[in-house]
Amino acid sequence: MNDISAPMGVQEAFDQALKQGRFLVQQCDGCHRHVYFPRELCPHCGHGSLQAVEPCGRGTVHAVTTVRRKPADGGDFNVSLIDLEEGVRMMSRVEGVTPDQVVIGMKVTARVADGIVLFDAVEAQ
């Protein structure tokens, strides 16, 4: 799906998808591992053919920080590294809870807002 063999680089292609509200990662045709961020070749095996695929959207907070910012500038906010179930890691922000409530191991789910991927905490089962 989502053949990105368009006459543009993968960054632009993924950016366009995000602007349409679609979050994509890559999967290598050679070693079948998932790749993020999008690249022109597989960083695992060097293969040059990768497919754009939609991740399931579920992830886990791997590392967390609260960036301190003056209240006048919007106040403190979260920056996290999120491990997706597909086995890739990405930087993002967990929203919907205060920054101090974001903890390592927290289950989160992806959504696209304003052209970037954000995460929300999954309610306790």
Binding site: F37, V64, T65, V67, L81, M90, M91, I116
Partner: peptide, 19 residues
């Protein structure tokens, strides 16, 4: 793929490792 989340770099990167 990092900049849109406004990490304060470099400190936030080291903070993530510390966490």
């Amino acid at each position: 793929y990092e900049m849109p989340y406004q990490p304060m770099l470099p400190p936030s990167a080291y903070a993530l490792a510390a966490s």
